[in-house]
Design a binder for these strands. Structure first.
Lengths: 202, 202
DNA sequence: GCAATATTTGTAAATATATACAGACTGATG
DNA sequence: CATCAGTCTGTATATATTTACAAATATTGC
């Protein structure tokens, strides 16, 4: 069905785990041992029981003993919120993760990889205000006019991208701020990702 | 707990429905009759059974007979997106629900009850652009300076609220638009809710 | 090769769960 | 007033579900 996400799981165990997740999203409840047997053609509920024990021992599910359908899947991971980024450190360093928000994967397209907390008003006229959470899709390439997360000389900034010859411009969306013009031959510019959405919480 | 979203449900039935949805999102499985009894203090599983029958008869849940925890919520939990609102009809009429977004309940505070798709640029300087989804908490009261969803003479509008004497002002956040001044004695103004957040999808 | 783990069968309980039957009380409705 | 829907108690039972015990056949690691 799918190659093991978790290298500690066997093929069969991964299949069982996939079936549980599938059942939860499709039916709104975890399967019983008997239902697992039905799905895989087992003749004994202990076939399922054994796999559940193994999955629980490896920490990928939790079993509430004595309860019908007492299988829990671990918390869906959710998107990390990246707060203040120290100069020179990688964007996704663990120290920068404030917390995680459980957002459905299909909320943004392309898929958001993280949420960046915006500082300052340089993108005000694009409707991006101080404190907003910018949904960012990681990628190294971007088209003209896209709002990008860029790293210039180890500083992280959110701007509108524009190419012009062998130079690149990073334009703010606020007349109070000046554009940044980068000569790729003398300064390092890295595109960390493109904006795919925004979340504001009052 | 909450005023009935569905006018066909009694207070008690809404509470039961809320508890079921709460259990599904929190535990990953629907509750049993006994668990419902425990949550509400009932002494007989038939108290729960009766309510489940009523909810099923009204179409808001589905019961898979003979299965443990065989309760289904046809409406996936999530916030309804309200699109174009026809003049004179209630905001949350089913016809206005474009789709639902599965958003964690603790994303906004106070809790968002629905997402309103914003039309036009009258709130541009507040970072609210055309097409944005405004997270709205239903309530009839609002303080000065809050961004509110208001109904004036059967038109829905998003503006900044300001009281002044027995008049009320609805201020746009864009100099190209004119404020609306309401005399409560001659015109009907209803606060439908206050903004608690915003979601933008590119 | 040997031990440990993985995979599956088969049988049998203990208990969790759904659900039937009977009834009491309340408030709304025609 | 009679009736009906809503709300809840109490008892009982059929079935769904978990889970223990016993064991056979692979596969894997050392």
């Amino acid at each position: 069905m799918r190659s093991p996400t978790n290298p500690r799981l066997t093929i069969r165990q991964q299949e069982i785990l996939d079936f549980i997740a599938h059942t939860v999203t499709l039916e709104g409840r975890p399967p019983t041992r008997t239902e697992i047997c039905g799905a895989f053609g087992f003749r004994s509920p202990n076939a399922a029981e054994g796999h559940l024990r193994a999955l629980a021992a490896k920490g990928v599910i939790k079993i509430d003993e004595g309860l019908a359908r007492g299988i829990r899947l671990p918390e869906p991971p959710g998107l990390p919120i990246i707060g203040h980024v120290a100069a020179g450190s990688p964007l996704l360093a663990v120290g920068h993760i404030e917390k995680r928000l459980q957002i459905p994967s299909d909320l943004f397209f392309p898929r958001a990889d993280y949420l960046l907390r915006v500082c300052g008003m340089s993108m005000r006229d694009a409707g991006i205000l101080d404190g907003d959470l910018l949904a960012v899709h990681r990628c190294a390439e971007a088209r003209d006019g896209q709002i990008v997360v860029a790293r210039i000389e180890n500083e992280i900034t959110v701007k509108i991208l524009r190419h012009s010859g062998h130079a690149m411009e990073l334009l703010p969306a606020n007349p109070d701020f000046a554009p940044t013009i980068i000569d790729a031959r003398s300064q390092s510019l890295t595109i960390e990702g493109v904006m795919v959405g925004l979340i504001r919480r009052d």
